[in-house]
Design a binder for these strands. Sequence first.
DNA 1: TCACAATGTTAGGATCTCTCACATATGTAA
DNA 2: TTACATATGTGAGAGATCCTAACATTGTGA
Lengths: 208, 208
Amino acid sequence: MNISPTVQKKRESYHHGDLRAQLIEATRQLVEEKGPDRFSVAEACRRARVSTAAPYKHFKDKTEMLLEVAADGMRRHATEMIEVVAPFPQGTLERIIALGRIYIRFAVAEPGVFRLMFSWADEDQVDELLTGLGEGTYTFVKLEVAKCLGRDHITEEDERRALMLWSMVHGMAFLSIDNKLKNERVGDDLEPLLADIAARVLPEAKSA
Amino acid sequence: MNISPTVQKKRESYHHGDLRAQLIEATRQLVEEKGPDRFSVAEACRRARVSTAAPYKHFKDKTEMLLEVAADGMRRHATEMIEVVAPFPQGTLERIIALGRIYIRFAVAEPGVFRLMFSWADEDQVDELLTGLGEGTYTFVKLEVAKCLGRDHITEEDERRALMLWSMVHGMAFLSIDNKLKNERVGDDLEPLLADIAARVLPEAKSA
DNA sequence: TCACAATGTTAGGATCTCTCACATATGTAA
DNA sequence: TTACATATGTGAGAGATCCTAACATTGTGA
């Protein structure tokens, strides 16, 4: 088992120069390759070619390394969602559908990171940073829903509709990455399914 | 830290008598208390008052212990779902709503087991048993959907509708146990939300 | 320049999973 | 009942992990 060239780096000096960033990258790769549970600090160290004690100069513990990867995932996820609605006119179903599509695509493309972002029971340490990031993104979604219903501020009704949509794509994302949809080939039919769902939850919205 | 009385048992004989069952029960308890990731075989042994080598006479490895708990969860989950529709007439939305309610309640009541049942990336060993059990339950749900739409066998359209419903409750279950719904008090409003969702996905169904 | 902060390493403690050899109980056949 | 196989426990220990402590090397600001 040799080292991935994207992380490996011949080091002639005692100090590393860029260890923190390289450890995060190694962590992200390992979380994808092995899953968040099977990630080990020791293996990330091997990839970055440092001793197993080195990470503790940069991170409090293993959890903090994973947290960094999760937070980065949240930020990229949010960025993607904001970018993906841009081509479509405000208040249209197309924007909602695009959000759902990218949500599920992210989960399928990076299931390890997606799991870290959401399904993490690690109480206190995680909740501060991640829920902050998550709430920001969700507020953006709720505003999109509000605009579909002809408003420019979020009402309780908008929150109800947004929650239905979020639950649906979130559930579909997890069912996909947990391999529960073998017989219901969702990959092919995802697009019409998303459109159908969006229309059922937001029948009032105009459609382009 | 003392031992839970439900598992502890004074043992005067060399042999245990009921170790396998008690280990499974200890595993289930620990999965709930600490989460599936932080479960350790060693601690289950302490609770059952046996050496750390004892479990390997009954289980291949740690994964097999967890698998046993997950499979038991699947069976109980399925039983609950079958029982909960019984009071309502066939083909009514009430049955669908009852299914959604019990689905989410199970997740909230036993988040550790629920996570084991679904969010488990442990490839081969798991997929055989658990997906078998899961598919059985899902077929039952699909049949309920079909009956709501006036059929007694499952069509592609039924599968589409069932998938929407499953995704929605599955997503809501995970968002709940992952504590992502702090601001959207779902606990109180779950019932009307479920009814709303069911009506949107199955508008053709009669409602009692 | 030179003390000090930053960032590496080595060594080791505590814990964990799992295996191996051995101990003890239980059941079955003569 | 006795003898032996099988089932099920224990103790010891290999190998891996997370993390800390003490020490080594380098970069930097007064």
